[in-house]
């Protein structure tokens, strides 16, 4: 958890990225799959926001929507993404290409297949630099790449290697070096540590934290590992079936999760002290082409009420910096009457 100093708090008043009603659909012969069903959130300067959710919840699609990298048959149906005052969704391709990487970078799941197998590692970093800054002196570029390598803890000998000669953790760090090469405003890290074993995962996560601190960038981290998230991010946004169901500072959500889905999610973090049955037993149950009216979680919710089946709860702030989309709570964060408190947690 990043400790917030006074200066940080001030910086964190400023929004660098605003996402409004972002909707991404995938076209299929039997109707559109609603992958992201209109989400709203803000990213503040210097903060790390964790976007969590199970497979198929739309967290990666949301990220690719922000990056405008959704491939057909997927498309952004509506919504706005405002980065430092620029609206991205309607911006034309060539203008947006100038912003890519200089302001909005991606750290992909690099351990897998994110590096071009026919290009030497350094060239895959310098081509991005040269695409945005123009041709440069070879020796200067070399020094820059080696500096980046040093920052992410890669040995210099990797400079001339091909991706297949690197281990998974090295490839991931190359991707981090690539992502920070142009000092972007916002970095989106898509499951950047998911495919690594826990030891390498820890090293890579620490590298990311260190680099993030040194550069002061804002970051969206996508993942499903709540334990890792707890150590890395400032705020957590929980996604379920294309919707944000809860957004909260990381300390609060672990102590006091409000949404029933967040509760089971946190309940299912394994503990060494006690063995308990897993609360989550199934994935998203409804057809994503045809979500039920009302609350998106109604089919799995243990506290479902009549109300939930007809009216979708909006995401609203019920406590300080703590938003939830659930009918169980009053506007002041207290439980509505008639619900047993002990049952909710």
């Amino acid at each position: 958890m990043a400790e917030a100093s006074g200066q940080d708090v001030q910086r964190r008043q400023r929004k660098v990225l605003e996402v409004r009603n972002l909707r991404v659909h995938y076209e299929t012969p039997t109707g559109d799959v609603i992958a992201v069903a209109g989400i709203d959130f803000d990213l503040y300067d210097g903060e790390t926001l964790g976007l969590v959710g199970e497979s198929g919840s739309g967290k990666s699609t949301a990220a690719y929507g922000i990056l405008k990298l959704v491939q057909p048959p997927g498309r952004i149906v509506e919504g706005n993404v405002v980065l430092d005052g620029d609206e991205l969704v309607t911006m034309n391709d060539s203008n947006f290409r100038q912003l890519r990487w200089t302001k909005l970078a991606l750290i992909p799941q690099g351990a897998m297949n994110s590096l071009n197998p026919t290009m030497r590692v350094h060239r895959q970093i310098t081509d991005a630099i040269e695409a945005h800054e123009g041709k440069q002196d070879k020796e200067e570029l070399r020094q820059r790449v080696l500096d980046l390598f040093r920052m992410v803890g890669l040995p210099q000998r990797l400079y001339n290697m091909f991706p297949h000669e690197l281990s998974g953790g090295m490839k991931q760090r190359v991707c981090i070096a690539m992502g920070i090469a142009l000092h972007p405003t916002v970095i989106i890290a898509d499951e950047s540590t998911s495919a690594l074993d826990v030891v390498v995962q820890r090293v890579v996560a620490q590298t990311m934290l260190r680099v993030k601190k040194a550069l002061g960038v804002s970051m969206i981290m996508i993942g499903h590992d709540m334990g890792l998230m707890a150590q890395m991010v400032d705020r957590i946004a929980v996604m379920y079936a294309g919707k944000l169901v809860e957004v909260s500072p990381v300390e609060t959500i672990f102590e006091d999760p409000l949404h029933p889905y967040s509760q089971v999610l946190i309940e299912s973090i394994p503990s060494l002290k006690e063995r308990k049955p897993l609360k989550i037993t199934e994935g998203i149950t409804h057809d994503p082409r045809n979500p039920p009216p009302g609350c998106i979680f109604q089919l799995r919710c243990p506290f479902v009420m009549e109300h939930c089946r007809s009216e979708a709860p909006p995401l609203r702030e019920v406590k300080a910096r703590h938003q939830v989309a659930c009918h169980l709570y009053n506007d002041d964060g207290s439980l509505i009457e008639g619900v047993k408190v002990e049952a909710a947690v």
């Binding site: 990056l67 100038q98 912003l99 071009n116 290009m119």
Partner: peptide, 27 residues
Amino acid sequence: EGEDYMTLADAKGLPPFYVLYRYQVRN
């Protein structure tokens, strides 16, 4: 086209023609 490195090449904001020959055609 479906490879992750193609997505990353787009994300890097590389010129489209360069992505075509150095990333896609080359592989």
